[in-house]
């Protein structure tokens, strides 16, 4: 036996394979049927119906508007999340005592653990159908994610500048803005941009549960078996994701 492969590792691999096998067995996946000739034909037919994408002016205008709405949802929700996350990260990093720290950390975990789409279904109830619900849902989940990252960044930041300001009598908010924020700002910005890239993708999907944006259009088109329209929407989603990635990368470089 080669050195470095221990009994434990072998056991782990065995367990892993067993888990994978059990998963497929439990799900009763028609994997065999997938690779039969008729299934392949069906799939090919299905794919064919997506081409060519619908490029009628009417529909393009509709998609453009929905794309704009999606962009707005992603931007505003990220912005809101940054503000909320900053507010929660300060206590979560242990700056307002132990109790506040625990409460903030618990809230962040809760916000983060509930996925965007679940938040969206809840927010559709709370705020009615439409982009506002989607904005709130994304903002809530993103607050949880960013809050934890922001708090980590705060914990790893040198305290000397803030302490110096405190010892010259500066109030808490001013101390944070002058002594801590300049230190963490680049990292916070990088995290926020990274989440924005994720949120543009999520915002495109929230429409599935009625929370506005491109997703709603995709859902309708597929429900009505207008596959050509659907492929236009999917292309629009891809394009937006690529553009946002580019803008975000540019902003990150410019701010560094």
């Amino acid at each position: 036996m080669r050195a470095g492969i221990s009994l434990g590792a072998l056991l782990a691999v065995a367990l892993l394979l067993a888990a994978v096998g059990a998963s497929f067995a439990f799900l009763d996946m028609p994997l065999g049927a997938l690779f039969t000739g008729s299934a392949a034909n069906e799939a090919a037919d299905f794919v064919k119906r997506f081409f060519p994408p619908d490029t009628s002016v009417d529909f393009l205008a509709k998609v453009a508007w929905a794309a704009l709405e999606t962009l707005a949802i992603s931007l505003l929700s990220t912005l809101l999340a940054v503000l909320l996350a900053a507010g929660l990260a300060l206590p979560a990093a242990g700056r307002q005592g132990w109790l506040a720290g625990q409460v903030a950390r618990f809230s962040l975990n809760l916000l983060r653990s509930v996925p965007e789409l679940v938040w969206a279904t809840l927010m559709v109830l709370a705020a009615g159908l439409g982009p506002f619900a989607g904005t709130l849902a994304l903002a809530l989940h993103t607050t949880g994610v960013l809050g934890r990252l922001f708090a980590e960044a705060l914990e790893n930041t040198p305290a000397a500048p803030a302490e110096a300001l405190v010892s010259s009598g500066a109030p808490a908010l001013a101390t944070f803005l002058y002594g801590t924020l300049p230190l963490v700002a680049p990292q916070w910005l990088a995290y926020a941009l990274y989440r924005w890239e994720m949120n543009i993708r999520m915002a495109a999907i929230l429409g599935f549960v009625g929370a506005g944006g491109l997703g709603a259009q995709l859902y309708y088109s597929l429900s009505l078996f207008h596959e050509a329209e659907a492929s236009t929407v999917i292309l629009a989603m891809l394009m937006m994701a690529v553009v946002v990635d580019g803008v975000s990368a540019w902003l990150r470089r410019a701010s560094a």
């Binding site: 500048p161 010892s167 002594g179 300049p182």
Partner: peptide
């Protein structure tokens, strides 16, 4: 108090 090492954020 003027600190021994200047406590100023670099940016």
């Amino acid at each position: 108090l003027v600190h021994q090492s200047p406590p100023i954020p670099p940016r």
